[in-house]
C-alpha cells in the first residue's frame, strides 16, 4: 500500500504533464496556419515574375516609372552631363559610399535603373528635383543625385537597385530570371 501511495502521485503528475504538453503542441500547430495565411499567396508570388521594358522610347534626360512586384522602378536615360556629374562626385565622402560604376551596368552607363522607394520611410521621390540633378523626396526632404545616391536629408542609404539585365541594347528584363 505504501509503495502504491508514493508511486501514484508520480504517475499522476506524469499523465497531467504529458496531457498538457501534447495539448500545447497541438495549440501551437493550430496557430501555424493562422500565421502562415498572411504570407503572400501562390498567385502573388507567381505574379512577381520578371518584367521586360523597352527602352527605345525613353528620351535623353527622361525618367520613366514602371512597376515590378508592385514596386515603382525608375528608369533614367541619363544625358552626358548627368553621367559626368555622377562619375565626378567624391563618392568616398558620401553617406552610403558607392561609385557610379557600381550602380549601372558596364557599357550601359546611359541607363540608371533604381527602385523608386526612398530608403528613409518608403515614399516615392520626385524626379528632376532637388539640388543634385536627381530626386527629391517630398515626405522628409531626402535628396538623391543622378546616380540615385543619397546626398542630403534623413535617408540612410542610396536608392536600391533591382535585379535586371540587358536583353539587347534597348531592352531590359527587371527581376530574377525564372527558374525555367
Amino acid at each position: 500500500m505504501t509503495a502504491a501511495a508514493t508511486a501514484e502521485p508520480t504517475r499522476r503528475d506524469f499523465l497531467y504533464i504529458a496531457t498538457a504538453a501534447v495539448g500545447s503542441v497541438g495549440a501551437a500547430a493550430a496557430l501555424s496556419p493562422l500565421v502562415s495565411q498572411m504570407n503572400p499567396d501562390a498567385s502573388t508570388i507567381a505574379a512577381g515574375a520578371p518584367v521586360d521594358v523597352d527602352l527605345g522610347s525613353i528620351q535623353p534626360g527622361q525618367i520613366i516609372q514602371v512597376f515590378w512586384r508592385s514596386k515603382p522602378i525608375f528608369i533614367f536615360n541619363r544625358t552626358p552631363k548627368d553621367i559626368k556629374l555622377a562619375q565626378d562626385a567624391d563618392w568616398q565622402s558620401l553617406r552610403d559610399p558607392q561609385p557610379d560604376s557600381a550602380r549601372v551596368k558596364q557599357g550601359h552607363e546611359q541607363w540608371l535603373v533604381v527602385i523608386g522607394i526612398c530608403t528613409h520611410l518608403g515614399c516615392i521621390p520626385l524626379p528632376h528635383q532637388g539640388g543634385f540633378d536627381g530626386w527629391f523626396c517630398p515626405c522628409h526632404g531626402s535628396q538623391y543625385d543622378s546616380s540615385g545616391r543619397i546626398r542630403q536629408g534623413p535617408a540612410p542609404l542610396n536608392l536600391q537597385l533591382p535585379p535586371y539585365e540587358f536583353l539587347s541594347a534597348s531592352r531590359i528584363r527587371i527581376g530574377e530570371n525564372s527558374q525555367a
Binding site: L15, Y16, A18, T19, V22, G23, V25, G26, A29
Partner: peptide, 13 residues
C-alpha cells in the same frame, strides 16, 4: 493521429 492521442490522454486524465 494527434487528436486520437490527445483525446486518449484527456480520457485518462
Amino acid at each position: 493521429i494527434f487528436l486520437i492521442v490527445f483525446t486518449g490522454l484527456l480520457y485518462f486524465t
